[in-house]
């Protein structure tokens, strides 16, 4: 929730401000739906949060990159949410009920995120030369993280194999990545932007794009918690949680008092 939250107070007009608020709010909701699904499995949120706060849980590596300009908000919606949709549609068709139900809901909302992001990029790309440069710069920085977000190559993925065997996940990471690239590259071309991969080529024979080498070292570093924003984002989360403690306690105390009063009455 935090990387884009940064830009809510700086959104360049009222319409964008409202859209970004609604989008970031949805992302908070996604966290909640997934916690909710996990709770059906018997893991409670306090436990999940403490895993997150102590760095035990591996949260989506994308949140470790900084958002440096307004165009990043466009790039995130378009690329990161776009990649998320690819991942999630696969999970939505998976076999675990509560999880795939949450995913169905999430996917609907992601499609709004995806479009608003593309709309931002399109507006910038058609704007002043400075705006176009801002959009291209954001694409340069977010392209590879988004491509990596679809998970390690099949020969490098520890979880994917097992998830596929259990039918929680129905397709391999590389297959999903190919579909993402096939859809996204023409979208970039349409608005006059270029993906930062000099080896990207369309293969007439297969009908798919082939991409250049992916820097998996960076991916595994970020997952390990060594991204540029890892420590800060985590600290912000822990801080907010600590600051909220007295509020949660107050509401609990009030509820207990009310329950007691009802008993007496």
């Amino acid at each position: 929730m935090l990387p884009e939250g940064n830009w809510i107070t700086r959104a360049p007009n009222l319409r964008r401000k409202a859209i970004l608020l609604a989008k970031v709010q949805d992302e908070g909701g996604h966290g909640l739906y997934l916690y909710s699904a996990a709770e059906t499995l018997g893991v409670d949120r306090t436990e999940l949060l403490s895993q997150l706060h102590t760095g035990k849980a591996k949260y989506s590596s994308i949140f470790n990159y900084p958002t440096l300009s307004w165009a990043d908000i466009g790039a995130i919606g378009w690329l990161v949410d776009g990649a998320a949709i690819m991942n999630q549609t696969v999970l939505a068709r998976g076999s675990y009920g509560p999880y795939s139900r949450a995913m169905v809901r999430i996917c609907k909302e992601e499609s709004f995120h995806n479009r608003q992001g593309y709309e931002i990029m399109m507006t910038l790309a058609q704007g002043t030369p400075e705006q176009k440069a801002m959009a291209q710069d954001a694409l340069n920085r977010w392209w590879w993280p988004a491509v990596m977000m679809l998970g390690p190559s099949d020969d490098k993925s520890p979880n994917s194999d097992q998830l596929m065997r259990w039918k929680v996940k129905l397709e391999s990471n590389d297959a999903i990545r190919e579909r993402f690239i096939d859809r996204t590259v023409p979208q970039a071309e349409f608005i006059g932007l270029k993906v930062p991969d000099k080896d990207m080529k369309f293969n007439e024979k297969t009908g798919h794009y082939t991409h250049g080498e992916i820097n998996w070292d960076e991916f595994f570093e970020v997952i390990k918690g060594n991204g540029p924003c890892n420590a800060k984002r985590l600290k912000d989360r822990v801080e907010a949680d600590k600051k909220g403690r007295w509020v949660r306690e107050a509401a609990t105390a009030y509820a207990a008092k009310q329950a007691k009063e009802r008993e007496i009455a």
Partner: peptide, 20 residues
């Protein structure tokens, strides 16, 4: 909107954004 991501609990974050 400055509360976004800093609320005392996830549900309240979402509520404050609705109001914003």
């Amino acid at each position: 909107s400055e509360w976004c991501g800093h609320g005392p609990i996830l549900e309240e974050d979402i509520a404050l954004i609705n109001i914003a």
